[in-house]
Design a protein around this nucleic acid. Structure first.
Lengths: 117, 117, 117, 117
DNA sequence: GTGGTCTAGACCACT
DNA sequence: GTGGTCTAGACCACG
């Protein structure tokens, strides 16, 4: 796991997103035990509280479950993963189209530009 | 001009973006005189300092020029506008594709999702 | 606002509940500005971070909205309040009946005991 | 005996409550010999220390007596059981009414909601 | 003066 | 050794 933090946004959110992506793309498998809070902190060179906060939010999101004294685990419910993935995809598409329309590009133009990428 | 401010981001940036969009989409024409800082502030129900800051940043971006003692005007250089518009469009497309690829969607899938919107 | 904290449960949760109740029972009105995080902390003799955490969770619950640099406010949406109130009431009734049934009391007996209170 | 443990509370307390309920509802009869700590632990898939702790607390509560070298037995005093049951019932009813009143429901409303369950 | 973030470090309960 | 909580104190952006 790399750690190029962007100063513009809270570190804990960036950690959230990294782990979220790793879960959504099965870098961490369903039901897999995650590194301990302290290990994450060492690896990311960040205070354990910061990691804690990130993982907490992922837990309220349903991606992680905690077994006390035993560690934190990726959810075993693949449906949750799919839902979050699709929700993210839709949000981002919608946002993209909105932003493009704001500056005067139609949906067709927006797609054409993507294809050109 | 509406004013649904998002608590997550600085208000001055949100104002910047609104005015920028109005310029790029010719709501404010090339060379047109902009409302005074004071008027903007009243209309947006915001502190004049906040408007000031937004306009300053737009000026360093080249979208606005100040005619001393006379007010602020939209640039008369249409090329500047086109450049900014296209640059924005490319950035956003690139970002969109990156984000989608991060969560496991190919360019084709990304396009398909947009079409479904 | 009193401050008899129970050592068994996290302080931040107890703060959450106190404020939640104050909102649900209109001690804090719809749309009213809440005391600042620092003021709460002084009043409750607790670290500001602890208050912050409590208020944060209330925000994700939808009871509070933050206007940056301006303070935190009770939601203006009375529907949210009603929903939470009714949800709480149902949860508690269900829990009560379950607990009573576990130790061998029927719904009728459970009601009779309440009436005797 | 099932074992859906709740991460929020100590496992030993949850075990305590389960056994307590089994005694109060005569799943374990008066004077009956309980399974050994070891058997409990295997059945519950839990560390024997955890079971030990739970049983100890039940003993100080008077629900269980240890016959040295011979195992642990349910108390033979039926009055103890009745007392505990009624005390529990009263406590819970009182708590329920308090909680409902806190969020603005009268005793009558509280009863109505129960009936609707 | 407002909220937000982060760190360092401590202590706790549980297993 | 695991996660959870709390404190003290610092710094930041914003208006």
């Amino acid at each position: 796991m790399e750690f190029n933090f962007d100063n513009e946004r809270p570190i804990y959110k960036q950690i959230m997103e990294k782990i979220e992506i790793n879960i959504l793309t099965n870098v961490y498998d369903l039901g897999e035990k995650l590194p301990s809070v302290r290990d994450f902190a060492l690896e990311l060179k960040v205070n354990p509280n910061t990691v804690q906060r990130a993982l907490n939010e992922l837990e309220t999101q349903g991606l992680i479950t905690t077994m006390r004294t035993n560690g934190k685990f990726v959810t075993e419910d693949s449906k949750v993963l799919e839902d979050i993935k699709n929700q993210l995809a839709k949000e981002r598409s919608k946002l993209y189209l909105e932003q493009m329309s704001q500056i005067g590009f139609s949906k067709e133009q927006a797609i054409k530009i993507i294809k050109g990428e």
